[in-house]
Measured scan of single mutants.
Amino acid sequence: MGFKLLSKLLVYLTASIMAIASPLAFSVDSSGEYPTVSEIPVGEVRLYQIADGVWSHIATQSFDGAVYPSNGLIVRDGDELLLIDTAWGAKNTAALLAEIEKQIGLPVTRAVSTHFHDDRVGGVDVLRAAGVATYASPSTRRLAEVEGNEIPTHSLEGLSSSGDAVRFGPVELFYPGAAHSTDNLIVYVPSASVLYGGCAIYELSRTSAGNVADADLAEWPTSIERIQQHYPEAQFVIPGHGLPGGLDLLKHTTNVVKAHTNRSVVE
């Protein structure tokens, strides 16, 4: 069995187990497998329904001669939608809004960016022009300005110390501490036991640490421990890039980060 097929099978099995364990909360999309990078042309966006009122959005972007996937989250909030992270750029984010209108038909009224990198804030200006209120932590807003990236308009308070959590509509926002970046936030959907790890969490097929220019490698494993301790009931975990899975993604990420750190020390 090929690795790609095995990865998709694991996603399907995880979703099936969740649907059985929580039949009222989960209505997993039966329309197909989780979209992969090879299936999404740059400039297009796919939506994948995880649970009743919960979707991931998947886009792709060219970077350094390669094409990478990027995940975000959409959560229903009454007759409105909360968006977590842009679709990595203005063109993708405009396509995301169009796809949401086509498939869901509810307005996106608020959006949260989970850290300051372009795959999370690139497209904020498109959201703002569409009347979406954009939010991020003060740290993310400051770092985005320093980096020359787009800056969300509103500040999220109460997320300055490791372990801080605040309720934001249908989700809980959690600051686990520094990891992929010093400002990275985690998003949890309690009604569906869905954990969105953003770039602080890796997919299972990833074996290298990737972009760690703004990471705190020493603190990252401790931050992941905080996530595990705060959300032990999480059933569906979405990484910032690639295929979702279960809580095993947290341990896998820790292993990859520690291996990278150990290699760096040896070198």
Rank of each mutant, 00 (worst) to 15 (best):
A130N: 15
I238L: 07
R206V: 11
E39W: 11
R142P: 02
N92P: 05
L96V: 13
D119A: 03
V54F: 03
A165L: 14
A15P: 06
I224F: 03
N184M: 01
V257K: 02
D85M: 00
I20W: 09
G148Q: 15
A94I: 12
A144Q: 04
K8G: 13
R142Q: 11
E150F: 06
K102R: 11
E233L: 13
H252F: 03
L6F: 08
T261P: 15
E147N: 13
V112P: 04
I104P: 00
S31Y: 05
Y68D: 14
E44I: 11
G246E: 11
L24H: 07
V194Y: 02
A200R: 03
S30C: 11
V75R: 03
T153N: 06
A19I: 14
V266W: 09
P23R: 07
T86A: 13
T207A: 09
A98G: 09
V132D: 02
M18A: 05
R128I: 14
I50S: 03
E150Y: 12
N211P: 07
D79K: 14
S208I: 15
L156W: 02
L82V: 13
G210E: 13
S155L: 08
A234C: 05
E145P: 04
G246D: 08
L9C: 09
I100Q: 03
G240S: 03
V54S: 04
T261S: 13
W220Y: 15
S7W: 09
I224G: 02
H117Y: 02
V108N: 02
L97P: 02
I104G: 00
W55K: 00
V11N: 06
L185E: 01
D85T: 00
G242F: 03
V265I: 10
F174C: 02
F3Q: 05
I40L: 14
G242R: 02
I201G: 01
K251C: 10
Y48N: 09
E147G: 11
V45Y: 00
Y34W: 08
L127I: 05
E150C: 04
I58Y: 10
I20R: 13
E157Q: 12
P232N: 07
V126I: 11
C199H: 01
I186S: 05
S22Q: 06
G122T: 14
H260L: 06
F63G: 10
D79Q: 13
S205I: 10
A90W: 12
N255W: 08
I50Y: 06
A178Q: 12
A130T: 06
L5K: 08
N71H: 01
G169V: 03
T222F: 07
V45A: 10
G43C: 04
E145A: 15
V108E: 02
I151Y: 05
D214F: 11
N184D: 03
Y48G: 10
Y188C: 02
C199L: 00
S62N: 10
T254I: 07
L47E: 01
V189E: 06
A213T: 12
I224V: 12
N92A: 12
Q229Y: 11
T109I: 15
V265L: 09
D118Q: 15
L5I: 08
V265K: 10
L96E: 01
G148A: 14
P232M: 10
S139L: 12
F174N: 02
Y48M: 07
V45Q: 03
T60H: 11
I84V: 14
V37M: 11
M18L: 05
A130L: 14
S161E: 15
L83D: 02
A179T: 05
P69I: 07
D29E: 12
R110Q: 14
T222P: 14
S208W: 07
N262C: 07
H241V: 00
P221F: 13
M1G: 05
E225Y: 06
F26G: 08
Q103S: 14
V132Y: 00
T36L: 10
P244D: 03
Y135C: 03
L96Q: 03
P138L: 12
S22G: 09
L97V: 05
A90M: 14
W88R: 00
L243E: 07
V37Y: 09
Y68C: 08
E157I: 14
L204E: 07
T261W: 13
I186H: 04
L249E: 00
G131P: 04
S22T: 13
Q103H: 15
P41G: 12
T14G: 05
V67L: 08
L243R: 12
A130I: 15
L249R: 00
E80M: 09
V265Y: 15
P221Q: 07
A192F: 05
N92R: 11
A129D: 14
E147R: 14
V124I: 15
T114Y: 01
N255F: 09
W220K: 00
L156C: 02
H241S: 00
N149L: 13
D214H: 15
S7E: 09
V112Q: 03
R141W: 03
A66T: 10
L143W: 11
V146A: 10
S181Q: 00
V166H: 05
I100V: 10
T207M: 07
S160W: 14
S137Q: 15
H252I: 03
T109S: 15
L6G: 10
A129R: 10
P244H: 08
L195R: 00
N184S: 02
Y175P: 01
G43Q: 14
I40T: 09
L173V: 13
I186W: 01
W55P: 01
P152G: 04
V124F: 04
V189W: 00
P138N: 05
N262A: 08
S7I: 10
D216I: 12
D85R: 00
A15N: 13
V256W: 03
P69Y: 15
A90G: 13
I201Y: 01
F168G: 02
G163E: 09
V37C: 10
F116A: 15
V121Q: 00
R226W: 04
S160L: 13
G89M: 01
E147F: 13
A129V: 08
T140M: 02
K91D: 15
E39F: 10
S208D: 10
S70R: 02
L83H: 00
A111R: 03
A259C: 11
L217T: 10
Y202Q: 12
L204Q: 06
D183C: 00
I58L: 10
T86S: 14
G72A: 00
V124T: 06
A200Y: 04
I224R: 01
N255K: 15
R141N: 15
V187G: 04
A218H: 15
P232S: 12
A215S: 12
Y48P: 05
A51D: 14
P138G: 14
E172M: 12
A66D: 09
P239E: 00
L143R: 13
S205Y: 14
S161P: 04
S137C: 04
L97G: 01
G78R: 12
D29Q: 13
K258T: 08
P190L: 06
N71S: 08
A19C: 05
F63N: 07
A111N: 15
S27G: 08
Y12D: 14
L96S: 03
D119N: 03
A130Y: 06
S193T: 08
T222Q: 12
G197D: 02
L173D: 00
I84N: 01
N149F: 12
K8A: 06
G105R: 14
L159D: 02
A215W: 05
A213C: 15
A19Y: 11
G32C: 15
